[in-house]
Simulated scan of single mutants.
Amino acid sequence: MSFKNIRQLTTLFQSELKEIYAQEEIRNFIALIFDYKLSYSKVDLLMKQEDELAADIILFCEEALEKLKNHIPIQYIFGETEFYGLKFNVNPAVLIPRPETEELVHWIIEDCKTPDPEMLDIGTGSGCIPITLKKNIPDAKVKGWDISDEALTTARSNAALNNVMVDFCKQNALELKDVNEAFDIIVSNPPYVLEKEKELMHDNVLNNEPHLALFVPDNQPLLFYHAIAEFAKSNLKPSGKLYFEINEAFGDETVEMMEQLGFENIVLKKDLFGKDRMVRGEVN
């Protein structure tokens, strides 16, 4: 079925995607597409249902439909997303930033009282965490580490896009023993999805987002957390803080691990959905 206007396009999308997505999600895809391509509001969508679409818009919508049918996330189709009010380039080399990570960043921004803080994000991906921290705490000196060259290229492009200076470099989160630098704040959203949880994940995540940034062995759920916490214990300045985004199933275990390493004033924090999602610990 071809389409010439928004009404016909909506009918086509609902018909072609109904076996994969909920109706509300399909409507949201259409709203996002027209906001992205034409800056249409939802009122515009209603008022211009019968307006004839330009050829380039029709082509983009046709290509987007095929990609959505193949479970490609809408953010990868656009090549961009929004995080904490900022625009970020995204591609299959980096995870799509999540609302829970916005909550983590907000916690750090609200918490930070140190003048000219030195900050580090380990496993930076798109760079959304350090870039947003730098944007909101301009006097901070911020670094981002990742093992993926492709992710670092994306992160650097995002720093330029948002007009901030962040020092990105290649570093393996599991090989930090010989690194000796001092920070006021270390943050990480490391891989925390168990291999056995793959079957519970949606195809748009499983088939498109980088497994390197997602999964850990079933028998080592805190693999990255332990390595990063050990590094933080040695490399945080006095009264420095370590922040983690975590797997909701391992909140207590993460707290216990940090206690055993000597962290103090540990806080386990829930996200807006009531799930254990963030942990903060301090060094003396």
Results as ranks from 00 to 15, higher is better:
71 H>Y: 15
71 H>M: 02
72 I>M: 08
72 I>N: 00
72 I>K: 05
73 P>T: 10
74 I>N: 09
76 Y>P: 10
77 I>G: 04
77 I>P: 00
80 E>Y: 14
80 E>R: 15
81 T>P: 15
84 Y>L: 14
84 Y>A: 04
84 Y>Q: 04
85 G>M: 12
85 G>E: 01
86 L>W: 03
86 L>S: 03
87 K>A: 09
87 K>S: 08
88 F>Y: 06
88 F>A: 09
89 N>V: 05
89 N>H: 08
90 V>K: 06
90 V>G: 02
91 N>V: 01
91 N>L: 01
91 N>W: 02
93 A>R: 00
93 A>K: 05
93 A>Y: 03
93 A>S: 15
94 V>F: 06
96 I>W: 07
96 I>A: 05
97 P>T: 04
97 P>I: 03
98 R>W: 02
99 P>K: 06
99 P>V: 08
100 E>G: 14
100 E>C: 15
100 E>Y: 00
101 T>L: 07
101 T>E: 03
102 E>L: 15
104 L>M: 07
105 V>I: 15
105 V>R: 02
106 H>K: 08
106 H>C: 09
107 W>M: 10
108 I>S: 05
108 I>T: 02
109 I>A: 11
109 I>E: 00
109 I>S: 04
110 E>W: 11
110 E>M: 09
110 E>V: 15
111 D>T: 13
112 C>H: 04
112 C>M: 01
113 K>G: 13
114 T>Q: 15
114 T>W: 12
114 T>P: 05
115 P>A: 12
116 D>S: 11
117 P>G: 14
120 L>R: 14
120 L>I: 15
121 D>Q: 09
121 D>E: 14
122 I>A: 09
122 I>H: 02
123 G>I: 03
123 G>V: 09
125 G>M: 07
125 G>I: 02
126 S>K: 09
126 S>W: 02
126 S>P: 01
127 G>N: 00
127 G>T: 00
127 G>L: 02
127 G>Y: 06
128 C>T: 00
128 C>V: 10
128 C>E: 00
129 I>S: 01
130 P>C: 01
133 L>P: 00
134 K>E: 13
136 N>C: 08
137 I>N: 03
137 I>M: 14
137 I>Y: 12
137 I>P: 11
139 D>M: 10
140 A>C: 08
140 A>D: 05
140 A>R: 13
141 K>G: 11
141 K>I: 08
142 V>Y: 05
142 V>C: 14
143 K>S: 15
144 G>Q: 06
145 W>K: 10
146 D>I: 02
146 D>M: 09
146 D>C: 13
147 I>V: 12
148 S>D: 14
148 S>E: 11
148 S>I: 06
148 S>H: 15
148 S>Q: 06
149 D>G: 11
149 D>V: 12
150 E>K: 13
152 L>K: 09
152 L>Q: 11
153 T>F: 10
153 T>C: 10
154 T>P: 05
154 T>F: 06
155 A>M: 14
156 R>T: 07
156 R>P: 01
156 R>H: 13
156 R>L: 11
157 S>E: 14
157 S>K: 13
158 N>S: 12
160 A>D: 01
161 L>E: 08
162 N>C: 10
163 N>R: 15
163 N>L: 03
164 V>P: 01
164 V>W: 05
164 V>E: 01
165 M>G: 06
167 D>F: 08
